[in-house]
Design a protein around this nucleic acid. Structure first.
Lengths: 194, 194
DNA sequence: GTCTATAGATTGATAGAC
DNA sequence: GTCTATCAATCTATAGAC
């Protein structure tokens, strides 16, 4: 069954996005040359420029593509579990060892894009929106204010960073105690004392 | 008063390290060319190669230089405060708005070097040791086990990341409530429940 | 110990064939 | 829509003058 031009175009686009995710996670944004990105997608640089205009265009498209994927992943994760405590546990497990495509590469990519966003205003807006959505979704899923979700996300990111440098530095149970502790404190008033 | 050769060499070394800190924070490790690093230090690339062998050598030296500076900063910070609660507050304040040289650039540099360490085994060892020392020092300063220090550091890093994307995303008081909550939970047994 | 000059490789992007 | 060929710019690193 022959593909239409549109299908071929969409296929190339998807290939380039997937290749970008993997190559950038491995070599970094700056270390991933246009030729290397295209080759990993079984295309040439010409296809990349036809699809995204330039290298930055691909990065912005990658951010956009991923924004939706992240929201879907959190939602699916929560529909599969019932108790709050179970949700925390599966959240942490999926965070440090993602089962989906890309494996643990996505955490490195996350940091790469975060740094990229720090130097590119258009990207910053997209990444900031991605984080805001994640806070909202997580807050809703755990039935806590988004401020608590902010703390939970922060803790997971920071623990994952330390764990990547030294796998023994962060114990799973310690991580869960930390997450549960923050969750339980959700009833507290932020101005309760000084 | 004329400088000796040794003094001049030490001066150049310090200039290159300081310049590397600033330029890398602004443009990233990959975006900071050898010529740009040397020029920012009012030297040329020749001096850089004579001092550090190559670009990686400068990065490793920067990590080593900074390892000591970080430990000193935490120590000084804690000697100046008395109560635990005050120490938490000053810790957070200094973390998101460092008063010392480099300003808020150091957080970006921290992430740059963390990513660099993820792809360079020799650097990973150094950065991992840096984090381990920070955990020990912070645990000692707050009179809590290093596991709690791990959680506190993680929370601060993650909050700072979200804050940089959107200054309104992380309220100072919420951050302090999170830190205090984790600190209070230090008496808990990690295996207390499931 | 540092600078100038330069070699050799790689980069992002463009033009034209198909 | 994608590929081939190519340009101009930039990069790391080296060699020799001082």
């Amino acid at each position: 069954m022959a593909k239409t031009q549109q299908e071929r175009r969409a296929d190339t686009r998807q290939r380039l996005l997937t290749a970008a995710r993997d190559v950038i996670a491995e070599r970094g944004v700056a270390g991933a040359s246009v030729d290397a990105l295209a080759e990993a997608a079984d295309r040439t640089s010409g296809a990349l420029y036809a699809q995204f205009g330039n290298k930055d265009g691909l990065l912005l498209a990658l951010l956009d593509h991923w924004k939706k994927a992240t929201a879907n992943a959190i939602e699916a994760d929560f529909e599969a579990t019932s108790s709050i405590d179970e949700r925390l546990r599966s959240l942490w497990a999926n965070f440090i060892n993602p089962p989906a495509d890309g494996g643990d590469a996505w955490v490195l990519l996350e940091h790469e894009l975060w740094l990229y966003a720090g130097r590119n205003p258009a990207a910053r807006e997209q990444v900031a929106a991605r984080y805001a959505d994640a806070r909202e979704d997580l807050g809703a899923g755990l039935a806590v204010p988004s401020e608590v979700a902010t703390l939970l996300i922060a803790l997971m990111i920071g623990l994952e960073m330390q764990r990547r440098l030294d796998p023994d530095a962060v114990d799973d149970e310690v991580a869960l105690v930390g997450l549960r502790t923050l969750l339980r404190a959700s009833g507290m008033d932020a101005t309760q004392e000084r």
